[in-house]
């Protein structure tokens, strides 16, 4: 049951990551590209990490619990740093005077 849950989580996460990569390649300009790069990657890595954390904790003992907490901490730190980085890059682009894409 839990095994099914973590496979679903990991697969879902990969779907998000795939969407992120497609978005970076396909979207028309810098700002729109930052959108999938920031959001979908964070979501995808959260789901994947969650899945891995549950998978590790399936065989329950102290060492595995610690490992899964470490994995969750990775997700927390990605959530802190990835949006900040995206924000800073976009901020720098606006300050440098890059015009957003207006066609279409």
């Amino acid at each position: 049951m839990l095994l099914a849950l973590c496979s679903i989580l990991i697969i879902l996460g990969m779907v998000f990551l795939l969407g992120g990569s497609v978005g970076i390649l396909r979207l028309p300009d810098f700002y729109t590209r930052m959108h999938p790069a920031g959001k979908l990657d964070s979501m995808g890595s959260l789901l994947v990490n969650l899945g891995v954390a549950i998978y590790v904790a399936l065989d329950f003992n102290l060492a595995n619990l610690l490992t899964s907490i470490k994995v969750l901490l990775i997700a927390v730190f990605i959530y802190l740093s990835s949006p900040t980085a995206t924000h800073c890059i976009v901020d720098a682009a606006i300050r440098a005077g890059l015009e957003p894409w207006k066609k279409g």
Binding site: L80, T84, H87, C88, D91
Partner: peptide
């Protein structure tokens, strides 16, 4: 940037 400053101070 206030966001960047706060986050890096935290990290």
């Amino acid at each position: 940037d206030i966001i960047l400053k706060t986050i890096s101070r935290f990290l």
